[in-house]
Simulated assay, not measured.
Amino acid sequence: MSISVSTPVSTTLVDAPPELICIDGEFYRRHKFGGGLVAVTAKVAPSAYVDRRAMVRGHAVLLGTARLFGEAIAEDHAVLGGMTTLRDRARVGGEAILISGVIVREDAYVGGKTCLEGPIVVEGKAQVIDVNLRGRLTLR
């Protein structure tokens, strides 16, 4: 799922604060660094960057200088830290943990109980699920 910045989205709840946006029953606020959508149940460090079209859903956690660009999505219980970057339409979910310069881009997905410690690049239509990898790798 993606949301365009030109798509009007509003909440129908009378008592919802005006800064909240409701999408598919989940409430979001705009992150101060980048303006992307962050679920009220997620945790995002003030130093993390969330691009205006990117989303942090569920209980995902962005630490330090993690960055989401384009229409990237961090969701479920994923944890991103240590200069991890998601670009394009990349998604990270499940209980995945990405640290130390991992880059996920294009239409790649990382999920399950995966742990990646970079520098690792996951690109193309790669699906990385339930693995533990560290070192200098490119996964396509």
Rank of each mutant, 00 (worst) to 15 (best):
I21W: 04
L80N: 09
F33W: 10
I97V: 15
D107F: 11
G58L: 09
R29P: 01
R29N: 04
H77N: 12
Q127R: 15
G36P: 07
V9F: 03
V122F: 05
T12M: 07
Y109H: 10
D88M: 03
E106G: 01
E106T: 11
A45E: 02
G94F: 07
V40I: 15
R67F: 08
D51M: 06
L63H: 13
T84W: 07
G93F: 07
Y49W: 09
G35L: 00
P8E: 11
G81T: 11
M83T: 10
L133F: 02
A78F: 05
R67V: 11
P8C: 01
T41E: 14
M55Q: 13
I21F: 05
D24P: 00
V40E: 15
A78S: 14
K125D: 14
P18I: 10
A48Q: 00
A72Y: 08
V104N: 07
A66Y: 03
G135L: 07
I120S: 00
A54M: 08
A90P: 04
M1E: 14
E19P: 04
T138S: 13
V44Y: 00
D107E: 12
E26T: 07
I97N: 06
L13R: 15
G64Y: 06
L20A: 09
Y109P: 02
G118E: 08
S47M: 00
R105I: 08
H77E: 15
R87E: 15
G118N: 08
S10I: 05
G70H: 09
A60I: 06
L98W: 05
A74Q: 08
L37F: 08
F33K: 13
T85A: 09
G124A: 01
R57F: 06
A126G: 00
G112T: 06
K113G: 14
H31M: 06
L62G: 00
T65D: 15
L98D: 08
P17H: 10
V40L: 15
V56P: 03
I3Y: 13
D24V: 11
F33Q: 12
V50D: 00
P119C: 06
I21S: 00
A126Q: 01
A45H: 02
I120F: 02
G135V: 03
R29I: 14
D76T: 13
G124D: 00
G81D: 13
S10C: 03
G94D: 05
T65V: 10
V61S: 07
E19W: 07
F33P: 01
F69H: 15
L63C: 06
P18M: 08
G64M: 05
D76I: 08
H59W: 12
R29T: 11
V14E: 15
I3F: 13
H59G: 07
V121I: 15
V102C: 01
R105V: 08
A54Q: 03
K43R: 14
A60W: 09
